[in-house]
Design a protein around this nucleic acid. Structure first.
Lengths: 155, 155
DNA sequence: CACAATGGTGATGCACGCTCACTATGAAGG
DNA sequence: CCTTCATAGTGAGCGTGCATCACCATTGTG
């Protein structure tokens, strides 16, 4: 229709291309470490929270408790985490890192830092700032539209 | 480490948040139409190419032929496409839209246009342009790093 | 015509997500 | 204390997406 519409469409197309590209790259990068996106997300949560129960992980990741069981199963099998009994609640299990799991997270963080450098180091400062400003706006707008990836605290 | 690093990390974090948000939104939006991301991508390809064989779709989507069989199975079951015999090659099948499939694509395009408007309409022109410029740079850098979602023409 | 290449599918396996049903435990009330 | 309800985790089973391997039908070429 309008001229604006085609501008918007072009921008949205670029965004979606970026989404696909980064998604693929992330997946591949994690696979080298023996991880999947979901499992890495769980590890990442675990690092921020410290040892915690699967219930907490499920709420934090926004998936069902059953799914967490599966993810932890996988991470235990590959030696990234261990299940330990909860000290005060015998129903619950505490998921904690192994040394290998912690190392994997650190490696992934290094890789991410390196990636950021590759992406932005060559970009003129002004260009970079404009990009970040627009990106921040877009995110704010999305949040305003009710889009959020946090556990639906709609209650 | 350096000051740049934390700037970069902040930008990368925002990008990744955007990736997650849009991915979720897209998935949800498609689900309302009775579609998944993969199936919609196939329909999208089909629209750009016109009726084509599953082999072509597999190469275009960058997945195995077997996967395309499954996706087309699903789309046939929900009535979005039909399989037709290839006029000259009896091994191959031509995948073509049904009216319903075409309508679903059109609906999705309308939704996307609307979404673009919601995202960008309120953004000052200068901000928008800065964002798109930076985004274009980022994509160029990614392509320069060898990241591409086209069928790995690495051969 | 024989033989390699190609298009598609069955079988099988992995990962991820869900719900439902169930066990074991915890917490609160009478 | 004991019933009742809530909570943590898991088994079973389903849907989707992706892959490889084996196989069939067909094509195309020497």
């Amino acid at each position: 229709m309008s001229d604006d519409d085609s501008r918007f469409r072009g921008a949205l197309d670029r965004i979606l291309e970026l989404v696909v590209l980064l998604n693929d790259d992330m997946t591949q990068s994690l696979a080298k470490e023996g991880l999947t996106v979901s499992r890495a997300t769980l590890l990442w949560t675990l690092m921020q929270r410290g040892p915690c129960t699967q219930r907490v992980l499920a709420d934090d990741l926004g998936v069902s408790a059953r799914t967490v069981t599966g993810l932890v199963d996988g991470l235990v099998a590959t030696g990234f985490v261990v299940r330990e009994p909860h000290p005060s609640d015998r129903r619950a299990t505490l998921v904690t890192f192994t040394e290998r799991g912690a190392a994997a997270i650190r490696a992934q963080e290094r890789a991410q830092g390196e990636f950021g450098r590759q992406l932005f180091a060559e970009m003129p400062r002004e260009r970079f700032d404009g990009f970040v400003a627009g990106l921040t706006d877009v995110l704010a707008t999305l949040h305003g539209l009710g889009l959020t990836h946090r556990p639906t605290v709609t209650s």
